[in-house]
């Protein structure tokens, strides 16, 4: 069995190796996708068309809470993978559920944030800045929401089947995805929020 060798379970079969490599390449495509959205934002970030601007809108405290939630969730996801490698199903599930809750918390705050913007008079239709900002943020948010659904589906599979080469691979891939969203968020935090408040 693979667990006796040094190769982690998720890399134990050729198909698994290929799936993981494929997912890395997919993340490459995702980087291009988000880069394009960032570039769009940078082009349009000053086009307010008379609508609200960054400093009218951003509330650093809320953004910091979101950042904290998402970064922590990345950490708990790491712990879940660690437990998976140690073949501790229950601990793994525990940390996964923690990740899930933190992710949901993030989404909750993000939805509030959107409400706040609408309240302040910024929608997709207000200005080019509004379109670009909300689309960038929204795309990230939709990714997180999809990630949550995906994690739930995998929790069910792990509960049913235990930690096998296949479930381990799937879990490892979702963890890559989750960390990736974290990285994207750090860029949003720095180049959208902090820059906008400066």
């Amino acid at each position: 069995m693979a667990s006796q060798t040094s190769t982690p379970l998720e890399y134990s079969t050729k198909q698994n190796e290929m799936n993981i490599l494929g997912f890395w390449i997919f993340l490459g495509a995702e980087i291009v996708l988000f880069s394009t959205l960032f570039a769009t934002y940078f082009v349009l970030e000053q086009s307010y068309a008379g609508g609200p601007t960054q400093s009218d809108l951003f509330i650093l405290k809320d953004v910091l809470i979101e950042t904290f939630l998402l970064l922590t969730s990345s950490f708990t996801m790491g712990l879940a993978i660690h437990q998976m490698r140690g073949n501790n199903k229950n601990a793994m599930l525990f940390w996964t559920v923690a990740t899930l809750l933190l992710g949901l918390g993030f989404l909750y705050y993000e939805i509030n944030e959107f409400n706040h913007y609408i309240h302040e008079g910024l929608t997709l239709q207000t200005s080019a800045f509004g379109s670009a900002f909300l689309t960038l943020l929204g795309t990230h948010g939709v990714h997180v929401a999809l990630g949550i659904g995906w994690v739930i589906a995998l929790i069910i599979q792990v509960v049913r089947r235990g930690i096998t080469a296949v479930t381990a691979r799937k879990f490892f891939i979702v963890s890559l995805y989750w960390h990736f969203l974290d990285v994207v968020w750090i860029f949003i935090f720095t180049f959208v929020y902090l820059k906008g408040l400066m």
Binding site: L44, Q125, A128
Partner: peptide, 18 residues
């Protein structure tokens, strides 16, 4: 799609788009 269907302003000059 967002511009055409949902009234965004990425490429439409009216809302500051380019």
């Amino acid at each position: 799609t967002l511009d055409r269907i949902f009234g965004a302003h990425f490429f439409t000059v009216a809302g500051g788009g380019d």
